[in-house]
Design a protein around this nucleic acid. Sequence first.
DNA 1: CCAATTATGGACTGATCAGTCAAAAACGGA
DNA 2: TCCGTTTTTGACTGATCAGTCCATAATTGG
Lengths: 194, 194
Amino acid sequence: MARPREFDRDAALKAATDVFWSKGFAATSTEDLVQAMGIGRQSFYNAFGDKRRLYLEALEAYQRNATSCHIGRLTTPASPLDGLRDLLVGLIPDDDALRCKGCLGAGSVGEFGVTDPELMEMRERMIAGFRAKVIERLREGQRLGEIDPEIDIEQAASFIEITMSGLQLAARGGAGAQHLHALAAFAVERFRAR
Amino acid sequence: MARPREFDRDAALKAATDVFWSKGFAATSTEDLVQAMGIGRQSFYNAFGDKRRLYLEALEAYQRNATSCHIGRLTTPASPLDGLRDLLVGLIPDDDALRCKGCLGAGSVGEFGVTDPELMEMRERMIAGFRAKVIERLREGQRLGEIDPEIDIEQAASFIEITMSGLQLAARGGAGAQHLHALAAFAVERFRAR
DNA sequence: CCAATTATGGACTGATCAGTCAAAAACGGA
DNA sequence: TCCGTTTTTGACTGATCAGTCCATAATTGG
């Protein structure tokens, strides 16, 4: 029907995601973006709307992928406690350049806080399914006697969430992989029944 | 000798701190700042250098004050575990508007990551004394039998640090005061000897 | 091969950015 | 009172911001 686009939309989105991930929304210019994406300015606006829409789309895709990876690590091991440990340890890449980018989702919370309703809605939507899986695994852990039976599951789930945030912010701040891996294991160990 | 300045430098710094705290560095314009500080543009540059220097000065004062408050709460109670709980619970203001600003220090880590050596140096300088106090209190807790003797103190201190970050990021994201207070208590309870 | 449609490249927009300049104003010391 | 020093005020700078316009190019269905 018409001229097809010359660039790979997904690849461009990925490139844009990396820029937002490293620099945040406000510090990223549209010039930064079109440069990194390797496309023209008009193609940018044609394909992605505007800077804000692109950010939302990048964040959504990032979160969807991240959540899926998290759930994979959480649910793969036979032992629930192992699953929780894999979840937390897996947040922290060994590669320095990657690790010190932190988490785009956490960055978004830090940058926008409660000021953007659309972002808050996205966060809630993304967290719900993940949290349910964590709760499931925690219950299983208690049933198997791995996890302290006196622990409140809902609170434990929230605790896992803030531990994830804390780890990711520490990673963004330059903390070492080994240190953070040990810390992740330490956190999970606090749940073990004795 | 010369014309004295008409505005209160400390008050202006406080006003600027609030803007950076709410909006972050990049999203704050110098116009925002002079507006909030209630001073003229040239007075701004005379008294504070430039936007970046002002940010550094605001962050330094903020951190110094915050750290001092943290140490106060940590060390006041007779029981080390109570001190640790007061430390974490005290991070979370009841006032919604204040709480959802989160922590300027955490915001700075999120915004700049490892990209700014001067900020990293400041972070390390600020954390050192505080961390020492936490370690002291943890040791005391173990000596008194309040804290699980099998816990590694260095890791526990790091764990307290990332829990603080996690709580503050959650607060910035809009989490409720009651919820976060309970979570703070939950985290400390993971240390208790049984 | 033409018409309709979409993509592309590059110039362009007004707004806002951080920071500066120059002149007037306000003070203390002589 | 007048001088030297600093603050204040408001206009101004070039750069960069996000986003648009338009002419040209490439494609497919008819």
